[in-house]
Design a protein around this nucleic acid. Sequence first.
DNA 1: CACGGCCCCGCATAATTATTCATCCTGGGG
DNA 2: CCCCAGGATGAATAATTATGCGGGGCCGTG
Lengths: 164, 164
Amino acid sequence: MNRSRRLTLVAQLLGGKRFSSQEELVKALARAGVEVTQATLSRDLRSLGVLKRHDGEGRATYELSGPAVETLDRERRLLDLKAFVNDVRVAQNLAIVRTPPGHANGVARAIDLAEFQGVMGSVAGDDTVLVVMQDAVLARKLKKRLDAIGATGVDHSANGGSAR
Amino acid sequence: MNRSRRLTLVAQLLGGKRFSSQEELVKALARAGVEVTQATLSRDLRSLGVLKRHDGEGRATYELSGPAVETLDRERRLLDLKAFVNDVRVAQNLAIVRTPPGHANGVARAIDLAEFQGVMGSVAGDDTVLVVMQDAVLARKLKKRLDAIGATGVDHSANGGSAR
DNA sequence: CACGGCCCCGCATAATTATTCATCCTGGGG
DNA sequence: CCCCAGGATGAATAATTATGCGGGGCCGTG
């Protein structure tokens, strides 16, 4: 198992579930067949630009750096769309995009920056992005585009549970 | 020194300089005349929703993840409308308001509080507020009002209903 | 005034995360 | 083949952050 493969896996795990400590993540990696120590993981998280946030009263969550960071290259945005769009539904001129917990923001930004035709704006919650489209036709077109991007790869099945 | 004052100060400090550990922040607070222990600060950071991220190579940074202050008075909210509404678009009966990252919530509250005519409710993401209006006409009117406020001063003649 | 409930805080300490140091590989030269 | 440089990693440990517990202050009630 080489390092960059491991980094990818870590990113995927973060996308799929909420982790509140590095030890948790170490165990998840172990279950996925990758054994590393917390020390290594700490280094990995740093190079991935992962951040730790406290949601409300209580537990911490590791998240891949979202929109706020400058390090948002095209590469990364595409990854967001590819890896973290779970489902897209359309209602009138609105598109509802489901993501793993905590990734709505990143996906929303990715959608904004991708400048799909007809996007008026989007609002991100925790695991849902609401995209307002100019009209129903363009909304359906957006869904197709996103579905297509998601179909092209990125394995989501790496870990066990989902948090919501 | 009252707690919420301290929280405000912490938020200001975070906005002005990079801090990479709570101890640093504790010292900065001390210089500003507020003495607290790291324990208290840890709790403060949590309630402010502050996050810690690692920039590129090396050091960590604490950042606010949302609106800096939690107790906003009316004065302040109107300021939000003036300063943080970047753009307003209308689609059907919805208004999409863009703000600087992290200010959507503040702006949303400000909109609710201003009680513009026809506002049914609003949802805030990170940098976007979705305002649901009674109908398209009122939505367009809202856009005009917000545009006007942004261009000039604060408009005090708002009226109407809000839901939230 | 006494009492109970709350909230906030500091202290001490537990829990978590980052780093230091020693290895172990790997890939060139020489 | 031998040696060196660089990168990655684990083990141990330092540094940082979170928290259990108890104390103190502040109401509202009886």
